[in-house]
Design a protein around this nucleic acid. Structure first.
Length: 272
DNA sequence: TCTCGTGTTTCTTG
DNA sequence: TCAAGAAACACGAG
């Protein structure tokens, strides 16, 4: 589920517990999400300390704590929730941080998510060394062009999914970007005209900014239960999931095909 | 019973 | 060494 804006959406659900003392950490240490994590160290370090800051970069999130860094990636089916203090963890709730007032829950039934812990004040390499976000000033037109040329033989859809270059963009966001730029997802990255490339660059930045703003619940006092409801009908997002959906621009039935190894949805005639 | 999947890593091939 | 595609991971939904 979680791409850029959704990651922010879920991260914010833990905000209520930030700056509250953690009394107890419950977790399932044998689960795959802890494959890069010393769970004994995590439990010892977080118990009786506080999360100080919630950070999001692409699909990665980090919670800076008093004496370490808690890193979370939601994978395919990960979610963060906030529950009452007496919450009993359900089957797929693999990590729960209990404070005096609430339970901060990480659930992930498919276990593609990942929890990391790095002791100390200094940010770990996995947090500090990340590629610039498409919305950053460092994400220049030149950088974008270089990426497309280097990956020129791959379909543009596949290139947009590379986290080393486009942190936060996932399957539906790549489709949204290409739909707005009116580019077919199977076009080769190296074969776009200079003009088309410029349009795509602008749409990449636009969709990332919109997703953060809308799904992050900017301006709302409270997040709704579902981030999908925050997205307007004018987005491809609201139409791409089921077979038989139609293009919000042309009304024509959307096509679904596997491109770059992923289910891809696009609008024939509109995208060329 | 069988296929599919909103993600990432690792393997294989060229 | 690099790029591209496929497989693997785990498990519920349809």
């Amino acid at each position: 589920m979680p791409e850029l804006g959704e990651v922010l959406f879920f991260a914010k659900r833990w905000d209520a517990g930030v700056r509250e003392r953690i009394q107890h950490v419950a977790l399932h240490p044998e689960k795959r999400i802890f494959r890069e994590c010393d769970t004994t160290e995590l439990q010892r370090a977080l118990t009786d300390s506080k999360l100080r800051e919630r950070l999001v970069h692409g699909k990665q999130m980090a919670f800076r704590a008093d004496n370490g860094w808690l890193g979370i990636h939601l994978g395919m089916t990960g979610k963060l929730r906030c529950e009452p203090r007496k919450y009993e963890p359900a089957k797929h709730d693999h990590m729960v941080l209990y404070t005096a007032r609430r339970a901060l829950v990480f659930e992930d039934f498919r276990l593609f998510g990942r929890v990391r812990f790095h002791p100390g004040q200094e940010p770990p390499e996995w947090w500090a060394k990340q590629p610039p976000m498409p919305t950053d000033a460092a994400f220049t037109r030149e950088r974008f062009s270089d990426i497309l040329q280097r990956r020129g033989k791959a379909p543009i859809k596949a290139v947009l999914l590379l986290q080393a270059y486009f942190p936060g963009i996932g399957n539906w966001m790549a489709d949204e970007v290409l739909w707005r730029a009116r580019i077919r997802p199977d076009r080769l990255a190296g074969e776009l005209s200079r003009r088309k490339e410029g349009e795509l660059y602008a749409k990449v930045r636009e969709v990332c900014a919109d997703a953060m703003r809308l799904m992050g619940g900017e301006g709302l006092d409270e997040l709704p239960g579902n981030h999908n409801d925050l997205v307007p009908e004018s987005w491809l997002f609201r139409h791409r999931w089921r077979e038989g959906g139609t293009c919000p621009e042309t009304g024509v039935q959307l096509r679904r095909e596997k491109i770059g190894g992923r289910t891809t949805c696009w609008s024939p005639k509109w995208q060329r």
